[in-house]
Amino acid sequence: MNFESRTVSINEIDTQDSRYQLSLHIDTHTIIESIKAVGLINPPVIVKRDDDHYSIVCGFRRVMACKALGWDEIPVCIPPRRPTDLDCLKLAILDNRSHRPLNLIEQSRAIKKLSPFFPPQERFSKITFLLGLPENEKVFKKIESLCQLSESAKLGILENTLSLEAGVELVELEPEEQDCFAFLFRTLKFSQNKQKELITFVKEIAIRESVGIKEVINSEEIRGIIDRSDINRNQKAKEIRAYLRRRRFPSLTKAEAKFFEDLKSLRLGPHIRLVPPPYFEGTTYNITITFKDITELEQCKSEFDAMCQNPVLKRILS
């Protein structure tokens, strides 16, 4: 496509028109410095609308930066014939992809914007090709759903404090509920699996107790843990997880606590480990004895004998 290069008044460009915009936020800080230093190397692509104003196809940051620098006019590229919306979107995607991979939110926005242009049976293959996505329909659907996230949850995805999998779990929630999780995950770093686990705990507690999700996350206990100054971020994350697990599984966690309390009373040394059946469902306990030599083994034997005589063991096994 041969573009016409010309200069237009910057006021004729509608910077609010985001129909071809893929990025969530336009950060002009770095580009302003670049334009100040070497000028506008690559003019943005714009198209004329029926109302004689221009929509930006490629170069939102460049236009915004020039505007911020107080330019009245800006050099631009204009396609010779007015392209279709689909062509403009393709152009915007290819332009972005030519200098960096699209982030998850941009991919999601692109899927949403492109979808109306393709029949359902072609949508997946055409769009994955355009976006350079792997041909995995499950992943495609997950990325697509991110569009429904609140602004702060989207930001969490961009900042990598909210994982794709966790983001997908949040999609069905109200925006304010998503914000609560986004805040929690931004404040305390959780691994991808822990994020999913926490979301599940909170959702299920809310259903079990017929309370709101916000109410669970903003509970005094969680706020208290976040506000503590005597523990670090990882410890806080661990405490919150433990608190939610206790609330989700009150009987199980109580039984676990009781077991560990009893275990302490057995006063086992570091070489003997008593492991209860998983979730106390079976009836088989495991004992692991580790030793280096005969002396250590004999020491373990005395400890083991003492444990067998201890009435606490009977209580544990009853």
């Binding site: 299920e204 259903i207 079990r208 599984f249 009150p250 009987s251 199980l252 039984a255 998983p278 979730y279 106390f280 469902e281 079976g282």
Partner: peptide, 18 residues
């Protein structure tokens, strides 16, 4: 959303004391 744990047959079951 009860207190389910994985049973020895891989089915989810209520925690045994319950």
């Amino acid at each position: 959303y009860g207190e389910f744990i994985p049973g020895l047959d891989n089915k989810m079951r209520y925690f045994k004391p319950l």
